[in-house]
Every structure is written in structure tokens, then in C-alpha cells.
């Protein structure tokens, strides 16, 4: 079992943190884990991304190559990474700010208004965790939504009550599992 995730967006959208929560969750499940951020001039130019890999075997290459799951929080990130997504993989699109989705052959597209969902739950800054919940919904063979909720509690130890963060995570999960539900 091996899964490759890319979380990408503007600096400040929390993509590095979303990836870190996933990596933390994977490490707690005893998977081999790598998390590697975008780095260098790219990081200083306003866009950010990280690659997270979880595996039950040793992970060799920590860099993205053929992600199973892409979380695209903005349009430039979507355009940059969408063609690298593995056939049969998934793209979680932040449809709050990305309204048009180009065709990507052989890949499941999930339009999830993660910013709207997070704001609707009174926790606008946790849109990244909403996107993480959506990503978990297409990666349940390696990580469950309850694992991810535990991951949030374990990672954000300085936050006394992660209830609101976990509610947003689960709303993102539900938006993929029951796309017709009113969110």
C-alpha cells in the first residue's frame, strides 16, 4: 500500500499544514512517511505545496511524481500539477475559487467548496482541513476519517478543543462521500 498526495495553493492557505497533519496521522499509524515542502524561491514567491507519501514499505523518493491525490486550493496549483496525477487518481478542487475545471482524462474530479464549507461552520481559516477531509474520502484504503480526526487532535496539541477543526474535516469528507448533500 502506497499513496502519494500533493497539497498545493497560495501561501497562507495552509497547504503545508494540511500535509503535515496527514503525515502525522500516517506516522501514528506506523506507516513509513515522508513530507517535503516546496522550497526555495518558489516558497518565497507566494505559492506553496508539499508532497506527502504514506506506505507500508520503505519510501524511496520523497518528491512528487505521479500523485494519487492532488488537493488544489487555487488555479495556478491545479494547472501546475493536474497532468501529473496518476490515472485512476483523484483531484480535490477548491471550487470556492476555482469555477472552471479543465478536462483531465482518467482522473476523478471532486469539486468541493472548501473555503465556503469552512466559513459556513464558523472556522474560515480551516479550509485546509476541509480539503484534507475531502482527500481522506478518496484515500480510505490507507487512512480513515477517524484516524485523521485523531491526527488533528494529536498534531495541534496547543489547541484545547479541536472540535471545530474536526467538524470542518468531516464536512470536507462528507462533501465527497455525499456530493448531493446540501453543504
Amino acid at each position: 500500500m502506497h499513496k502519494e498526495f500533493v497539497f498545493a495553493g497560495f501561501g497562507g492557505q495552509g497547504v503545508l499544514t494540511a500535509g503535515m497533519v496527514l503525515a502525522y496521522t500516517g506516522a501514528a499509524k506506523d506507516y513509513d512517511v515522508t513530507w517535503i515542502p516546496s522550497y526555495g524561491t518558489e516558497m518565497r514567491g507566494g505559492t506553496a505545496n508539499c508532497t506527502v507519501k504514506l506506505s507500508d514499505e520503505e519510501i524511496a523518493n520523497p518528491f512528487y511524481k505521479r500523485p494519487d491525490i492532488l488537493v488544489a486550493m487555487n488555479k495556478p496549483s491545479l494547472l501546475k500539477f493536474m497532468d501529473s496525477v496518476k490515472k485512476g487518481g483523484s483531484i480535490i478542487v477548491n471550487s470556492t475559487i476555482i469555477h472552471e475545471m479543465p478536462e483531465v482524462e482518467g482522473v476523478d474530479i471532486h469539486m468541493v467548496p472548501v473555503s465556503d464549507i469552512a466559513a459556513g461552520l464558523g472556522n474560515a481559516r480551516s479550509a485546509n482541513l476541509c480539503a484534507l477531509g475531502a482527500a481522506v474520502a478518496v484515500a480510505e484504503d490507507i487512512i480513515s476519517i477517524d484516524d485523521a480526526a485523531d491526527g488533528i487532535s494529536g498534531y495541534f496539541t496547543k489547541i484545547k478543543d479541536n472540535g471545530s477543526n474536526i467538524a470542518v474535516l468531516k464536512a470536507g469528507y462528507a462533501a465527497v462521500k455525499q456530493p448531493s448533500a446540501d453543504v
Binding site: A27, D32, V33, T34, W35, I36, P37
Partner: peptide, 10 residues
């Protein structure tokens, strides 16, 4: 190196 220093792992 920068990659090993910047990456996270268990």
C-alpha cells in the same frame, strides 16, 4: 543536504 534537512519523516 537541503532535502534531507527540510523533509519530515518518522
Amino acid at each position: 543536504d537541503a532535502a534531507i534537512g527540510q523533509m519530515c519523516g518518522s
